[in-house]
Design a protein around this nucleic acid. Structure first.
Lengths: 123, 123, 123, 123
DNA sequence: GTGGTCTAGACCACG
DNA sequence: GTGGTCTAGACCACC
């Protein structure tokens, strides 16, 4: 369901969050679907349950999932996060562009990068 | 000359590196110019000299500056890093775009972000 | 695993880097193998952990190893550095030959030195 | 007469020694020729006189020049250093070859480097 | 005075 | 316990 990259410098729970959001926003998981339990996913990924718990907490705080104590975690209704999600992505990208602009990259080069990133089939 | 942001999560020396590269690539410092000495810059920023040393070492390793022991650090010839620098920036941005794309952002939205980031006057 | 030469004028961390590269390039350490931890190697060599840290950082920057925070350091995939490594060695040797040539050594004498250096069994 | 490279990591006096030996062994300076005075060469190179003094001392110790107090420094008779000089160069190169060999370079690659270094016209 | 290296000891994030 | 960062203070080489 998810594959972790141990060479990635970011904390593992951030990777879990990112992958989960991708699954949810990409349609791999539909509203109401049950997420794997904290313990089982932790086993799957050979990771400490705390790591998964932390990720699920963050996902719930951001409205992507909701938790029913004693039953499990479920994908939330899209209405709750759709706009927030997109504006967050836009802000993230705008910040990245600003940074390379500070480094001296021109607008044309930046636009080319966008084109290039949207060329490849696989994501 | 440089201002550190203590709320920034990244290590201090990385901030120093980034700011210095911006100064050099942006023309604030010209080839042959002398950088502030390790100790004086450390004093200015209220930071340990080792932190500055580390940043200068990295800048030298990447060809942005060169060091003359007992004399100081100087901005290197642009030929050495110009292409590497730009291709690194492009790769960085492409990676960022790919990431938001995975999050579900469309190409149109991405292009808009670039426009937006290049609108503002200040950098 | 490694032996430091305290009479060597070069910094200790450079010696560690060199020995590690020899171990990796020489096959003494295979891709995926775990390196000794920063602290344990520091203990072994009676050296400050920072010194080892510095060497490992350099090795990672050059692609010889990769680091997983909280887990350890591992030998990287050879594809990443094999060509870079050889071309660096060749450049280093060519530079050395040029230097003795400037000193007046003939090509024949230089070739003899190579033969001599490849005669001895031990490396 | 001599040009210093401030980017060179070695001490300045070592550069002066090397350049002088090249001049002498290469025939740019003949036995009996007068070297520039410590003070004048120091002025020329914008360097502290101590640096030149140190180089001249080393050159005299190795038999390349001889000093007449109050008169100046002169190129010595080749018989004094010719063999020492060559065997020193050979030892230096052999050591360099051993080092790249330890790094995994093959004998064939090493021989190629020698050929390459002797191809270029300029020295 | 300059940069460079090393040590000692502290704190943090991750697991 | 793992690596990573930062500080403080010392010593060295070069100039």
């Amino acid at each position: 369901m998810i594959l972790l990259d141990y060479r990635d410098k970011r904390p593992l729970y951030e990777q879990v969050i990112e992958k989960m959001i991708q699954l949810i926003a990409g349609g791999g998981l539909s509203p109401g679907d049950k997420l794997p339990s904290v313990r089982s996913l932790a086993m799957d990924l050979s990771v400490n349950p705390n790591t998964i718990q932390r990720a699920y907490n963050a996902l719930e705080a951001d409205g992507y999932i909701y938790t029913v104590t004693g039953r499990g975690n479920y994908v939330a209704d899209p209405d709750a996060w759709k706009q927030d999600h997109e504006s967050a992505l836009e802000q993230q990208l705008t910040e990245a562009v600003l940074q390379v602009r500070r480094g001296g990259l021109t607008k044309e080069q930046a636009l080319l990068c966008v084109e290039k990133a949207f060329l490849k089939e696989e994501v």
